[in-house]
Nucleic acid binder design. Structure first.
Length: 713
DNA sequence: GTGCCTCGAGTTCT
DNA sequence: CTCGAGGCAC
């Protein structure tokens, strides 16, 4: 960008300065007001530098609204990314009392508690702010990270030090290492005052005012400032509600630790309460809901946590959410609007998704113009027609959802779901027993091709920086990219790309560097990126835990293909029974937990298609993913295959399985010669017999608990 | 056969 | 986030 020649004359320079002013203002807004930057900091910096260079060469043309004249306009150039010592989890949501009772019931089942055993909960308001983790070492604040994606956050230490609510040191009684977690937020009155101040300052300077959309965005924008002095001038507050890594924990209940945090001078929620049971927690919910409008800050629900920490630990987490906590959300705000039109989108799997185009309407503080209608059945269920008045809500405060269609006064024609792909005109059909209608165009369909490539470079897959939709479309249109491997050959087009509009040598090289950085990708992400049906990131990892390398997995897929062709139908067997038998054989052949026939067939289908095999070979010629290994806590069962059988007394099956996985063991459902260890409770039957026959070690539950304890669980 | 539970796949807005 | 469906335990 800055390498480009300067504009040749005043006219060109003025035009470019105008364009830069608009563009930089836009990105400032994305960054500050909306807290949703869409370009990298480096790309933003390049725009600012370019603007400065042109201004230096053409000082007469400096605009009144020049970005260089706007004090504090530049966002933090770089907030370092830092990994959390303990992942910052999100919370599952409950929308009704029943959901909350269900959580408690699940906890009882998981922990195998008797009906009379009390389950105490804590309840506290859920503040609409930014989660933050404050790390204290030797009782001094050493680091503050934002939540980020939960695994990696942004370093905002300097800014956090300016927040008066946050102590710089902990008392002598506190542990050597302790991470306090909580919410950075801005009070409603302070938010309004800040916007007023920004408006006045802008007016005095004769500029467009920058306004924050809501207190949450104001808090986010203020916390992520480059200059801590700007943050200091923003009235940020903090409320502690939990902890991360800790060398010791001050108490054995949630309530006790929160009390300790309060003793350490952290603000905690005034409404924080410990309840003897779910009914008590729900009463707190109602009390908090009643005060909601009078509170100084925005809240969007009430968080319940299991009070006993030993139980929290036993319950562990599922995905990114703990099993021992839940956020009980306040009812979603609803609104009415008109369904103007129903458009059809084509996804990477070819699925046709109907999207409702709505007359813009504000719901829950956000203007909504689109809402998904999911599929043909959903349209039929709602009987949604173009021109209808509809009721809209934001489910879980995020995704807009059409709840119902209002009675119409005039008849409207029913919506005719297309039977052809709107992009490639191929036939679109629903497979038997399936709800989704799919375009049959496959690789021929440009929409599918684009969506697949987008998926391949997306964050969860290869995560190639700077290769977004716009760039992909351009490269596809140029004919340089049609399949994943082509991305890794883009360098051969370097010189052609340089000089195309919007491509300077520097930006081309940045893209090529980002691509080169992925020559040795994580094998599971690569597999996931290929977009094989039923193979998401979790299944990709499960498969690679077992097969380690992609070629080994491909070999297995070919074995499945051979099996499908070879397994003969027994005479007199119905085709359905044959299919069941085949499916079982496939699941067994693959031998990976949670991987059954659907995934097996999908893998076989993928490799059966010669084009896919070619895409695969081509890709593996370009990249070399290292063998897949998962970091787990070492123990005597790491890498072993364990089977549980019989009735377990102190543990539920889920919990035992979770423990085994944490120790790096593979948990299987049945005993085979691959089994290393059988954990047998009372009443173990055929599995124990079979294990004895095969000479497999059999232990009881107490011995298993000893193994787990020995590994420091 | 039934009923969890989890995963995959699609989606909104800023 | 929500939905459907795969996989597995009972």
């Amino acid at each position: 960008m800055t390498d480009a020649p300067l504009p040749a004359n005043d006219t060109a320079a003025a035009a470019e300065l105008a364009r830069l002013a608009t563009e930089i203002a836009y990105h400032n807004r994305r960054y500050h007001t909306e807290d949703a930057p869409e370009i990298s900091d480096a790309a933003y910096d390049a725009l600012v530098r370019r603007n400065r260079l042109i201004e230096e060469a053409f000082p007469a043309l400096i605009r009144d609204d020049s970005p260089s004249r706007q004090v504090g306009a530049a966002p933090a150039a770089h907030l370092a990314k830092v990994a959390h010592a303990r992942a910052m989890m999100s919370l599952d949501n409950a929308f009704s009392d029943e959901d909350v009772l269900e959580l408690v019931a699940r906890v009882r089942r998981f922990l195998r508690l008797g009906a009379e055993e009390p389950v105490a909960l804590t309840a506290e308001p859920k503040i609409d702010g930014l989660s933050c983790s404050l790390r204290y070492e030797d009782r001094r604040l050493v680091q503050a990270l934002t939540r980020g994606d939960g695994a990696v956050g942004e370093d905002v230490t300097a800014n956090v030090r300016t927040i008066a609510d946050i102590p710089a040191t902990l008392p002598a009684a506190a542990p050597d290492v302790f991470e306090v977690r909580g919410e950075v937020y801005m009070e409603k009155a302070a938010f309004a005052a800040l916007n007023r101040r920004l408006a006045e300052e802008a007016a005095a300077a004769g500029k467009e005012p920058r306004q924050f959309a809501n207190p949450r965005n104001a808090a986010a924008g203020s916390l992520r400032q480059k200059d801590p002095e700007v943050t200091r001038a923003r009235p940020l507050r903090f409320l502690a509600h939990g902890w991360g890594e800790a060398s010791a924990i001050p108490g054995d209940t949630q309530a006790a630790v929160v009390a300790a945090l309060r003793d350490w001078r952290f603000p905690v929620a005034a409404a924080f309460a410990r309840c003897d049971d779910a009914a008590g927690a729900l009463a707190v919910y109602r009390a908090i809901e009643a005060q909601r409008a009078d509170l100084a800050f925005d809240i969007d629900g009430v968080v319940y946590k299991l009070d006993r920490l030993d139980w929290q630990e036993r319950l562990g987490s599922v995905g990114r959410a703990p099993r021992w906590a839940i956020a009980h959300k306040f009812p979603a705000e609803q609104a009415q609007t008109t369904l103007e039109r129903i458009d059809i989108q084509v996804g990477r799997t070819g699925k046709l998704t109907p999207v409702a185009r709505l007359t813009p309407v504000t719901v829950g503080g956000v203007v909504v113009t689109n809402a998904t209608l999911h599929n043909r059945d959903e349209i039929a269920r709602l009987d949604a027609r173009e021109g209808d008045r509809v009721i809209l809500q934001r489910a879980g405060d995020v995704i807009p959802q059409i709840v119902a269609v209002l009675p119409r006064d005039t008849e409207l024609p029913p919506f005719a779901f297309p039977d052809h792909c709107p992009i490639c005109r191929s036939e679109a059909v629903a497979e038997e027993g399936e709800v989704d209608v799919r375009c049959t165009g496959g690789l021929v369909c440009p929409a599918q091709r684009l969506e697949r490539l987008k998926h391949f470079v997306s964050r969860g897959a290869l995560d190639i920086d700077g290769l977004g939709e716009k760039t992909l479309v351009e490269l596809i249109d140029l004919g340089w990219i049609t399949e994943p491997a082509d991305i890794f050959r883009l360098a051969t087009h370097r010189d052609e790309l340089v000089g195309r509009e919007g491509w300077q040598a520097r930006s081309v090289d940045a893209l090529l560097d980002a691509i080169e950085a992925r020559r040795a990708p994580d094998a599971a992400r690569l597999l996931f990126g290929l977009g094989i049906r039923h193979v998401g990131i979790v299944t990709a990892r499960d498969l690679l835990k077992r097969y380690v390398t992609l070629p080994a997995l491909a070999d297995k897929a070919h074995e499945v293909i051979a099996l499908r062709e070879a397994l003969p139908a027994v005479i007199g067997e119905t085709s359905e029974r044959h299919r069941t038998r085949l499916d079982k054989a496939i699941a067994e052949l693959i031998g990976v937990e949670n991987v059954g026939a659907a995934v097996g067939h999908a893998l076989a289908d993928f490799f059966h298609e010669p084009h896919n095999q070619a895409v695969w070979d081509d890709l593996l010629a370009q990249v070399s993913p290292p063998p897949f290994v998962v970091e787990t806590r070492g123990s005597e069962v790491t890498g072993k295959t364990v089977v549980f059988t019989g009735k377990l007394e102190t543990l539920s099956r889920d919990e035992a399985k979770a423990q085994a996985e944490r120790l790096g063991a593979h948990v299987a459902g049945s005993v085979s010669k691959k089994t290393d260890l059988l954990v047998a409770g009372p009443g173990a039957g055929s599995k124990a017999t079979k294990a004895a026959e095969l000479g497999i070690t059999v232990i009881d539950e107490a011995a298993w608990n000893a193994i787990v304890a020995g590994a420091g669980e």
